[in-house]
Computed example of a mutant assay.
Amino acid sequence: MSIEPPRAAIVGIGATDFSARSGRSELELACQAILAALDDAGIDPGEVDGLVRFGASQRRASEGAVAHALGLGGLSYWSEVDLGGGASAALVGHAAMAVGTGAARCVVGYRALNGRSGARPGTSQTSAALEDIDPHYRDFLVPHGLTSPVQMYALIARRYLHHYALPGNALGGVARSFRRHADRNPNAQLYGRPLGPEEYDESEVISSPLRKLDCCLQTDGAAAFVVVPADRAGDLAQPPAYVRGSVQASMANQPGFLYSFVGAGDVLRTPAEEAAGRLYARAGLTAGDVDVAQLYDCFSITAVLAAEAYGFCAPGEGAQRAAAGMFDLGGGIPANTAGGSFGEGYIHGVNHVLEGVRQIRGRSTSQVPGAATCLVTGGMPVPTSAVLLTKDAA
């Protein structure tokens, strides 16, 4: 099978500071990140003719509101990708398809979140909204007291530990690695707060077996990136990160929105398995070609299952390999090198896209030497997405 060259590239990235209390609206945060991304690329806002946004709980930073606030010209393309954390890498895919097909010439993808001081995921406010849009959540989970994401992922983590006969603290290696990366990143929310040797084991249990340090941060902030056709990418201010391949995937019999494990025969199987096979085939690459990964990490179990699904270790090995340093610099697959959602900030994984671009540029605070291919994955077990970024267009 012949592999076509990339049609699109990310040429600009931008983010706000990541904090617990920004004092800014979603719209203001989004505009700041977008302007930073355009400045990074050396592109005037008037050139933007496409916007792609993360839909979930981002109602105050719509495409129309952003276009008006920034004085953009008329848009020829816009889209909204939903499905919780599964949408993060899909934003890149939508933008790449738009410029690759000629629907637009310059597309900005963005995510803004008042995840700490505003509408916090998993609270009664956001849970009430879910009851309106997801009957499976309302009918099968709420009556049993399962109302927040951590409870769902705790069930998956419990099954993983039981199935592979692992101790209750087996997932601690994920937090230790990601926090080490965050401590080298001055822009990380937890920069300067290294994880003590016993801190994970002493952290409180939130929903057994998941501890506080198995959970992502709650963050105010925004992240944005600029995508243009590949044939223009080399003429701009920054080295491009080419979109080598992108994919979205769901499983059969996967109802619901966030709580899409309802009815699953095996909660350890996720759409990432389908995504991985198709992504590598489209890109003409294998897991062995990937130098660094940015794995969606709302909870530690998610990063472990992603590492297994995308071929970096065998099923059941992820937690033990993470504890042995698989995600560290020099490990089997360095991952979440800016600190991820555990240390840098929780921007629903869109900040992972930015870190993927930094790795390709050679400018990460935890740089993998010679990194030429970076995998960025979306969340799961919801319908998921992934993208491969490369240094070279060939």
Results as ranks from 00 to 15, higher is better:
241 A>F: 03
178 F>C: 12
187 N>Y: 15
268 L>R: 07
173 G>M: 04
205 V>M: 11
244 R>T: 07
178 F>G: 03
214 D>W: 08
276 A>D: 07
279 L>S: 02
180 R>N: 08
193 R>E: 13
176 R>T: 11
218 Q>M: 14
167 P>N: 10
248 Q>T: 12
255 P>I: 06
272 A>W: 00
246 S>M: 08
213 L>K: 02
171 L>H: 00
198 E>V: 10
279 L>E: 01
271 P>I: 02
262 V>H: 09
247 V>H: 06
184 R>I: 04
281 A>W: 00
238 Q>M: 09
180 R>Y: 10
289 D>P: 06
173 G>C: 07
237 A>V: 06
203 S>T: 12
250 S>Q: 14
231 D>A: 12
240 P>L: 08
233 A>R: 00
225 F>H: 00
260 S>G: 11
219 T>C: 08
216 C>N: 08
223 A>C: 15
282 R>T: 09
200 Y>H: 08
190 L>R: 15
180 R>A: 14
212 K>E: 09
288 G>H: 05
173 G>W: 03
229 P>D: 02
221 G>F: 02
245 G>Y: 07
244 R>N: 03
259 Y>V: 10
177 S>E: 08
182 A>V: 02
219 T>V: 06
267 V>M: 14
278 R>M: 06
237 A>H: 05
185 N>A: 13
278 R>Q: 08
171 L>R: 00
175 A>S: 04
255 P>A: 08
172 G>I: 02
241 A>R: 00
264 A>F: 15
211 R>P: 09
175 A>V: 06
210 L>C: 11
268 L>T: 08
195 L>M: 14
182 A>P: 04
250 S>M: 15
214 D>S: 13
202 E>M: 15
176 R>Y: 12
287 A>C: 07
245 G>M: 01
221 G>D: 05
268 L>N: 03
279 L>T: 05
214 D>M: 05
200 Y>M: 08
175 A>I: 01
267 V>F: 14
223 A>N: 12
247 V>I: 12
240 P>C: 05
168 G>T: 13
184 R>H: 15
212 K>F: 07
223 A>K: 01
228 V>W: 00
223 A>W: 00
277 G>T: 10
247 V>M: 09
199 E>V: 11
276 A>E: 06
261 F>C: 11
238 Q>A: 12
203 S>H: 11
274 E>T: 13
259 Y>D: 13
250 S>I: 04
288 G>I: 07
199 E>F: 07
207 S>K: 03
211 R>M: 09
224 A>R: 11
184 R>M: 08
